[in-house]
Computed example of a mutant assay.
Amino acid sequence: MKTFRYPARHGYAVEVSPFLPTRLACATAQYYGIAGCGTLLVLEQREADVCLVRSFDWNDGLFDVTWSENNEHVLVTGAGDGSIQVWDSENSQGPLQVLKEHTQEVYSVDWSQTRGETLLVSGSWDHTAKVWDPERLQCLCTLRGHEGVVYSTIWSPHIPGCIASASGDGTLRVWDVKAAVCRLAIPAHNGEILSCDWCKYDQNVLVTGSVDCSLCVWDLRNIRQPVTKLLGHSYAIRRVKFSPFHHTILASCSYDFTVRFWDFSKTEPLLETLEHHSEFVCGLDFNLHVPNQVVDCSWDETVKIYSPPKLAAAQPSAP
Rank of each mutant, 00 (worst) to 15 (best):
M1K: 06
T3V: 11
T3N: 08
F4A: 00
Y6R: 04
R9N: 06
E15L: 12
L20T: 03
T22F: 15
G33C: 00
A35M: 07
G36Y: 14
G36T: 13
G38R: 09
L40E: 04
V42P: 06
E47R: 07
C51P: 07
L52E: 10
F56D: 00
N59Q: 07
N59V: 12
G61C: 11
L62G: 05
D64V: 00
S68Q: 05
S68T: 10
H73Q: 05
A79L: 09
D81F: 11
S83W: 08
I84P: 08
I84L: 02
Q85K: 06
D88Q: 04
D88A: 10
S89Q: 02
E90L: 08
P95N: 11
Q97P: 05
V98I: 13
L99R: 15
E101S: 06
H102C: 03
T103G: 05
Q104L: 03
E105A: 05
V106Q: 02
W111A: 00
S112H: 05
Q113T: 07
T114P: 07
G116I: 11
E117K: 00
T118N: 06
L119V: 04
L119D: 01
L119W: 08
L119H: 03
S122I: 04
G123L: 12
V131N: 00
D133C: 08
Q138N: 07
Q138I: 08
C141R: 11
L143C: 00
L143T: 01
L143I: 09
H146Q: 02
H146M: 13
E147M: 15
Y151N: 06
S152N: 15
I154W: 11
W155K: 05
P157V: 12
I163S: 06
I163Y: 08
A164R: 13
S167C: 14
G168A: 09
D169P: 05
T171K: 07
L172T: 02
W175Q: 14
D176S: 09
V177P: 02
K178W: 13
A180I: 01
R183D: 04
R183H: 07
H189R: 03
H189Q: 12
G191Y: 14
S195H: 10
C199L: 09
C199R: 07
K200A: 08
N204I: 15
V205L: 11
C213F: 12
C213G: 00
L220C: 10
N222L: 09
N222E: 10
K229C: 03
L231W: 04
H233C: 04
Y235I: 12
A236E: 11
V240H: 07
V240R: 01
K241N: 15
F245Q: 03
T248K: 09
L250E: 11
C253H: 15
T258Y: 14
V259H: 15
V259M: 10
R260H: 09
W262T: 11
W262S: 02
S265K: 11
T267P: 01
E279K: 08
N287Q: 09
L288A: 13
H289V: 06
V290Y: 12
D296H: 06
C297E: 02
C297F: 01
D300F: 06
E301I: 01
V303H: 02
I305S: 01
Y306H: 04
P309Q: 15
K310A: 14
Q315E: 13
Q315M: 03
P316H: 02
P316D: 07
